[in-house]
Design a protein around this nucleic acid. Structure first.
Lengths: 147, 147
DNA sequence: TTCCTTGCAAACGATTTGCATTGGA
DNA sequence: TCCAATGCAAATCGTTTGCAAGGAA
């Protein structure tokens, strides 16, 4: 299930937006909260205790994305992966396995993160671009695929 | 058209691999070489002087990807974007517009790049992951979308 | 000739949508 | 009661593939 803290934050946010926090949406948030990293809709579906049709999952994910509760990621083998937004899980980056397509979260030290931020502002300043976010993707081979 | 230098490098690489550098494949390389950043197959198609069916473009892109001449990117609104590989264009990062989905290349200074590399090795060392590459994605709003 | 490439159309997988039904405030 | 949420089936969209025709070595 979802950690109580996260669940409360989500409930509050949705209530502010006048959006219902239904059983289906709770299931989605709980499923994502239990993952180690962003997951595809099919993966998410398979982790749910109560079966929910894909179309409903997509609809819930869409609502939750617009509410800023989940973030979609497109870096991979065909299917979009979803995870809880960073204000719920903390800022992090991704290890992407080029072999199997799996994605795992990784956190970096605050001084490294500060370095990244500085780099991003410097870059954005030089171009005509209003940067709001950044993400470092590290590609390589995961332990599983290497053996 | 493709810059002569690039074209020659591509021709040489393909010849080494025993793969033909056909008119269709030249058109793809030229189309990508003229772009400002990674483009979708549909975008690529629209820039070609001679019309080429999508299926052929996908097949050419597949061959060229396997030959290491083009790199696919999945960070965006649904469709995969392709661009020439970095050994042809130089290492760079991406500015991704969260509003319209466009992606533009951006280069960073060598000292900043060195910082990134160090960061990546440090992170990979701490986890069970064989890092081979990295890419920094900066999300925000492009000039067009901001006005 | 022989193998690789291309076009066209059909097939596919991921995601979206129309519509009737269900459920919650 | 009344509108939002859900399930199911059909529709879309990006991408892949089978197969027959075209080309280069």
């Amino acid at each position: 299930m979802t950690n109580a803290q996260t669940d409360k934050q989500v409930a509050h946010r949705l209530s502010d937006l006048g959006v219902r926090y239904t059983a289906g949406r709770r299931a989605v948030v709980a499923g994502l909260a239990n993952g180690e990293g962003p997951m595809t809709v099919t993966e998410l579906q398979s982790t749910l205790s109560v079966p929910i049709p894909l179309s409903s999952l997509y609809r819930s994910l869409s609502v939750l994305s617009e509410a800023g509760i989940v973030s979609p990621h497109h870096s991979g083998h065909g299917a979009t992966r979803f995870e809880l937004a960073e204000w719920l899980t903390g800022h992090h980056h991704h290890l992407v396995c080029v072999s199997c397509g799996s994605v795992n979260d990784i956190e970096i030290s605050s001084d490294h993160e500060q370095g990244l931020k500085d780099l991003v502002s410097a870059l954005a300043a030089g171009s005509d671009f209003a940067a709001t976010d950044h993400s470092l993707e590290i590609d390589g081979e995961c332990r599983e695929c290497r053996r």
